[in-house]
């Protein structure tokens, strides 16, 4: 058996009684006690009245000024965000724009690139060089000069030939 007094037991359960949360047995016990105890009956009445008064408090309508102030605030926030983003991206965007201008200048107004040699042109150039060297050699011997073949070959003919050989495979592929 519970050791609490009937008044304590009742007062601990008044709120649950008002909300209909007691079992039928508990409900009967509380009502029976309240019928014989003026203090608990008054307490129960106070509790009921308070709940009634609370539930009578009106739901309110939000003033239109709140919506207007909210719209203004959102507008200002968007402006601030835009300005912040503009500041954050201004320097990189400016740098990117300068780079784009430079790249565009080179892309659309490039240095003239010499046309590629054809194998035929290279072969003709080789023949002209060899003819020139042969002519120089012949002239050298007819004039009796002392420039020797073993000087002309390694120092003039071979470097020219090497250069031509370097060009030829690229052009002929």
């Amino acid at each position: 058996m519970p050791s609490t007094s009937p008044c304590s037991w009742t007062q601990e359960r008044i709120e649950a009684y008002i909300d209909g949360e007691l079992t039928p047995v508990e409900q009967g016990r509380l009502e029976a006690h309240a019928a014989t105890c003026a203090a608990c009956a008054a307490e129960l009445e106070d509790a009921r009245r308070l709940v009634g008064e609370l539930r009578d408090l009106p739901a309110l309508t939000c003033p239109d000024a709140v919506s207007q102030a909210l719209q203004d605030r959102i507008y200002r926030t968007r402006q601030d965000r835009w300005r912040t983003a503009a500041r954050r991206w201004y320097a990189p965007l400016a740098a990117a724009a300068v780079l784009a201008l430079i790249a565009g200048y080179h892309l659309f107004d490039p240095e003239p690139v010499p046309p590629a040699f054809s194998p035929k042109e290279v072969a003709q150039a080789r023949r002209q060089v060899e003819w020139t060297l042969a002519y120089l050699s012949d002239l050298n011997s007819r004039m009796g000069t002392t420039v020797r073949d073993d000087v002309i070959q390694p120092h003039l003919v071979q470097p020219l030939r090497l250069n031509l050989d370097a060009i030829l495979p690229v052009q002929t592929m």
């Binding site: 739901a59 309110l60 939000c62 919506s67 102030a69 909210l70 605030r73 926030t77």
Partner: peptide, 28 residues
């Protein structure tokens, strides 16, 4: 939701000015 928020804030804070500020803050 604005009326519900405003009602809650009004009874919680006990005045209309705070309720308006809080409603605006919550919706923001």
């Amino acid at each position: 939701h604005r009326d519900r928020i405003y009602t809650f804030a009004f009874y919680y804070m006990g005045n209309r000015e705070d309720a308006e500020d809080i409603t605006q803050e919550v919706l923001f």
